[in-house]
Simulated scan of single mutants.
Amino acid sequence: MIEEQASRTAVLVCQGRAVGDGRVGVGRFSDPVAAQLLQGEERQAVERARSGSAPRQWRERMHYEMLNATSAVLVTRTVVIDEAVRSAGNPQLVVLGAGLDARAWRMSELSGAVVFEVDHPASQQDKRQRVDSLEPVCKSLTYVPVDFGRDELGPALAAAGHDQASPTTWIWEGVLPYLTHAEAEATLLAVAERSAEGSRLIATYPMPNRLAALGRRGMQVYSRLTGAKDPLENERHVSAWSPEQMRSLLAAHGLTVTSNVDLFATSRDLSIPARQSRFYGLGYAVVADKLGG
């Protein structure tokens, strides 16, 4: 992400959750806060997508379809992550690349947890303006500004009050595609060093796909046709992993994979109308725990 520019992807992710609230994955997914974090046209686009009535005008129709497709992906992975957070029940939660994540405002299970949101300073400034007077439901919330390509995560968390001796749940949602393997390794090193026994990492990641560049090109074409901003213009996907590579990567940092979830299969189990194509997939959500010796 370009320095001093807030993430457009974060807005799209928030819109996807807002579109799905009360409509998709009912009983397993809920995010009534997402819409409150959106502004102006961002929220109006969500309202059109939620209407269930596809616009006749083709540009609006394309945006309508894109937001509903995004919602299916976001709801699926949110269900998997939220349930892994609940089952861990750790006293600390760190959200890496938090964007417009609303868990600190919507998950009552975090009432006794200390939450740390880590993100690029520009995105964090935008987030803080959007949450405005909303009150978190967690025990406490601390913002930790970090540029993952330049700053050291460990010292930043330590300075923010993260307790290295207490079990932590880490959420790494939708971030890995934007990191080089070296940057991912650096982040994992800090996570491992600050993970007490009982800690858990939940991460989403894409599979290698030789046709992914065509899907990326499709997003560029869509943006030109609709006159919308390309959410990935300054946030390029630079890496992907196979489940075997991810398992080895986490094992090298003392984390044992306890679940590796195919998100497309999960969407079908949840009766969520997610789409799978040759150009892109929903990817995987991996849960890895710091087990005792």
Score class of each variant (00 low, 15 high):
233 E>F: 11
205 Y>L: 12
136 P>W: 12
184 A>Y: 09
198 G>D: 04
202 I>W: 10
148 F>H: 09
216 R>K: 09
148 F>S: 07
192 A>K: 14
172 W>M: 06
175 V>Y: 03
230 D>M: 08
137 V>H: 10
238 V>A: 10
169 T>V: 14
139 K>Q: 15
160 A>G: 02
249 L>T: 05
243 P>W: 02
168 T>M: 07
211 L>S: 08
150 R>W: 12
123 S>H: 04
184 A>T: 13
126 D>V: 01
214 L>I: 04
217 R>F: 05
238 V>W: 07
148 F>R: 02
211 L>E: 08
167 P>G: 09
154 G>N: 00
236 R>H: 15
140 S>H: 05
190 A>Q: 01
254 G>Q: 07
193 E>F: 08
251 A>W: 09
184 A>V: 13
170 W>A: 05
190 A>V: 00
152 E>A: 15
180 T>C: 02
162 H>R: 13
214 L>K: 03
161 G>I: 01
197 E>H: 09
248 S>F: 09
219 M>G: 01
140 S>D: 13
231 P>T: 03
191 V>S: 07
156 A>V: 01
190 A>W: 06
180 T>D: 01
240 A>S: 12
197 E>N: 09
237 H>E: 09
191 V>K: 04
177 P>M: 03
217 R>L: 09
139 K>P: 04
211 L>Y: 14
250 L>D: 10
183 E>T: 08
216 R>I: 02
222 Y>V: 11
212 A>P: 04
192 A>P: 13
220 Q>P: 05
209 N>K: 10
175 V>M: 04
149 G>R: 09
217 R>G: 07
144 V>D: 01
156 A>E: 12
228 A>M: 14
158 A>V: 04
211 L>R: 10
175 V>K: 01
148 F>T: 10
222 Y>K: 06
254 G>L: 13
207 M>A: 15
180 T>V: 02
170 W>R: 08
197 E>P: 08
130 R>S: 06
136 P>G: 00
199 S>Y: 03
231 P>M: 03
131 V>S: 08
169 T>N: 12
175 V>P: 02
148 F>Q: 10
180 T>Q: 04
